[in-house]
Design a protein around this nucleic acid. Sequence first.
DNA 1: ATTCGGATACTCTGAGTCGAGTATCTCGGC
DNA 2: GCCGAGATACTCGACTCAGAGTATCCGAAT
Lengths: 227, 227
Amino acid sequence: MPRRQRSNPLALAVLAVLSERPMHPYEMAATMRSRGHDESIRLNYGSLYSTVDGLTRRGLIAPVETERDGRRPERTVYAVTDDGRTEVTDWLAELLGTSTKEYPQFEAGLALMGVLPPDRVVALLRERADALDLESLRLESIVTAATDNGVPPVFLVEIDYERALVDADLAFTRRLADDLERAAIGGVDEWRSFHESGGVVPVGDPNQERSDVPSEAVVEAEEGVAR
Amino acid sequence: MPRRQRSNPLALAVLAVLSERPMHPYEMAATMRSRGHDESIRLNYGSLYSTVDGLTRRGLIAPVETERDGRRPERTVYAVTDDGRTEVTDWLAELLGTSTKEYPQFEAGLALMGVLPPDRVVALLRERADALDLESLRLESIVTAATDNGVPPVFLVEIDYERALVDADLAFTRRLADDLERAAIGGVDEWRSFHESGGVVPVGDPNQERSDVPSEAVVEAEEGVAR
DNA sequence: ATTCGGATACTCTGAGTCGAGTATCTCGGC
DNA sequence: GCCGAGATACTCGACTCAGAGTATCCGAAT
């Protein structure tokens, strides 16, 4: 059994458009773009073609014809198979019915922010908040424009979703910046004094170095995390 | 100039731990895990070792010694270089100071949900909401446990962040399920009747097929999106 | 008449990703 | 004193991904 892999949503999008009618890859891309799905699903040609290959290998889609127009490159039209039809609904049910852990970049930044001094972090968070504000407005204008064009709101829920997340992110980011500034979170003072008194952990004998660290409590606490 | 690529946060985490002191890859992994960073940054051995290779190639870290313990595999200890030190702070500033577009799986699901009938979607969204509820509790208990263990709250902000997003996601998901059920969003009735009267788009001549589609308005509207 | 941007339609390559696999050592329980 | 579970430390290979590159065609403006 060829190990199923539902990691790449682009494959699901391919199955979905092919459920409507057979197409060649380039047309799939054009269709997705015209529906704004490229806003929610990462789409670029390299991935598209290899995704289509993968789906073909797994028997979820199959080429139905290849046509050539003048001296242009050949176009291969694909159709979804019965297995493919089953897969679309199963996969979609999985996406809509469960929550999968994701790893946003910003979360990594938060986990490692101790490397920078707190004042710097506060300034950066404020910048980020402004960027998120713009992003929220951008999303709003997409919805407004589409609605004015007669697109029924059901087709825009993925944008609403993104906006809800951006707004939550914005609120969190602003709040964190404020809390760090006012040192309203435990450990900020130690973090600050660590950076003010040297900051860079010296490289050398690990054992020596441990006792060189200014704010021992912080390091120990961080290392002692038992989750 | 070797094109910099800051796509993989694991590389940043490697630079960050090596900023503290030189280590061999396996120890880096153990350190990250002990700090709970594997909750925020995707970590597995395959990626770790190739990430370390990449950083070495780009001159951001360098091997300082290789030691062997009995007949065990050799351990190569790496240290961060000056370029590496610059890179950590620059990269971190980028992560904390800007927002990068991400593509959550669920958003893809929302964009394609039209493939399933609305009632099915409502049921699935309810399931997802329950899962998110559990996830929120899990995150809360992580914070509680760590705090009880004496970890200063500053080291837990990335969990707070995740929790804020999960809660926003939960609120959105529940709200959407309700709205779809009550058809409080424009286009749901058309969607429903489309599925009740056949549902599957026939495969065949594209031109014919277009006029076969029961709810023409829906399809046209979706295709007419101009964003 | 010509040219030049943009659309059409893929192809190539190098790099990254991930899980499973390998082999050794350690330590506690019986 | 031996056995198995878990920790230590990495390796391998199949697959995926991104984005630049290639080649052709069309239409509108020069």
